[in-house]
């Protein structure tokens, strides 16, 4: 089992089997979105920011 720590609240999060790099997971403790950036070793980063923009 891969375990990572939330970048916001440091909660330990166990990645489920089949987790992919680039997957967005939610910290069960603080609710922040995290992006799985590596599986070996397991690492997460804050999920991509959401922006708004004009444009077709």
């Amino acid at each position: 089992m891969n375990t990572v720590n939330c970048t916001e609240c440091d909660a330990a999060i166990t990645l489920s089997t089949g987790t992919e790099v680039g997957e967005i997971i939610v910290c069960p403790d603080c609710g922040v979105d995290l992006e799985v950036t590596s599986l070996d070793p397991a690492q997460v980063s804050p999920a991509p920011m959401e922006q708004e923009d004009w444009g077709e």
């Binding site: 992919e20 950036t37 922006q51 444009g55 077709e56």
Partner: peptide, 27 residues
């Protein structure tokens, strides 16, 4: 946003030195 397609782009952007972000457009 949680699809293999989006994950593939996020990983590619990070692998090439970028910091990915999501955008929602008013157009």
């Amino acid at each position: 946003k949680n699809t293999p397609l989006v994950r593939s782009f996020l990983a590619a952007i990070r692998a090439h030195g970028g910091t990915p972000s999501f955008v929602y457009k008013t157009g």
